[in-house]
């Protein structure tokens, strides 16, 4: 590892983490790959000194979320990723996966990052506040509203019998 450059080391150790975070924020695998690529290339071209792996991970997650925001703000955003592409190229999606993915997509972006950081990465509200540069009260509100939004989406799915997507 000593001869390994930081970006390569980071990619090997946290490549999936970054990809996952990007996916959780944008709901599209293709875009998540683009974001992950940008994140690691940024680290590659502009090396950052980290105290340890956790510091590196926190940095990568923050940059990832920022890039997701930028993507959402850009003109090039495309929200029409192919389910088939994701099914065949990445993993075998079952019905639950498709529903979850639709929920992630339906979730407003401001909630998706805190939902992901809290429920998947296990960060606390205060840590998320530090990570995203937000007031802890704001993060707490976003988390609550995000969960409410998810609950709403879920209830709609239950009422309508699911989203209108093709099932495997």
């Amino acid at each position: 590892m000593e001869n390994e450059n930081a970006s390569l080391y980071a990619f090997r150790k946290f490549g999936d983490t970054v990809l996952r975070a990007a996916y959780a924020c944008c709901g599209c695998y293709a875009e998540a790959e683009d974001i992950a690529q940008d994140v690691f290339l940024l680290l590659h071209t502009k090396p950052v000194a980290f105290t340890d792996d956790e510091h590196m991970k926190a940095w990568l997650l923050r940059v990832t979320i920022n890039k997701c925001k930028n993507l959402n703000r850009s003109f090039r955003i495309s929200r029409t990723g192919s389910i088939d592409e994701e099914r065949s190229g990445i993993y075998n999606m079952d019905v639950t996966d498709v529903e979850v993915r639709e929920l992630i997509r339906a979730l407003p972006k401001k909630y998706s990052s805190v939902i992901y950081l809290h429920f998947y990465e296990g960060y606390t509200i205060k840590e998320i506040a530090g990570l995203l540069g937000k007031n802890p009260n704001t993060v707490s509100s976003l988390l609550q509203r995000g969960k409410e939004k998810l609950r709403l989406e879920i209830s709609q799915i239950n009422m309508t019998g699911g989203h209108n997507y093709e099932k495997k």
Binding site: F11, L19, E33, L41, H44
Partner: peptide, 19 residues
């Protein structure tokens, strides 16, 4: 669901080469 999100072999190979 998120656990299943992983770098595809193609993406991993491409990134390793670039990095």
């Amino acid at each position: 669901h998120l656990d299943k999100i992983k770098c595809s072999p193609e993406f991993r190979a491409k990134m390793e080469e670039r990095l």
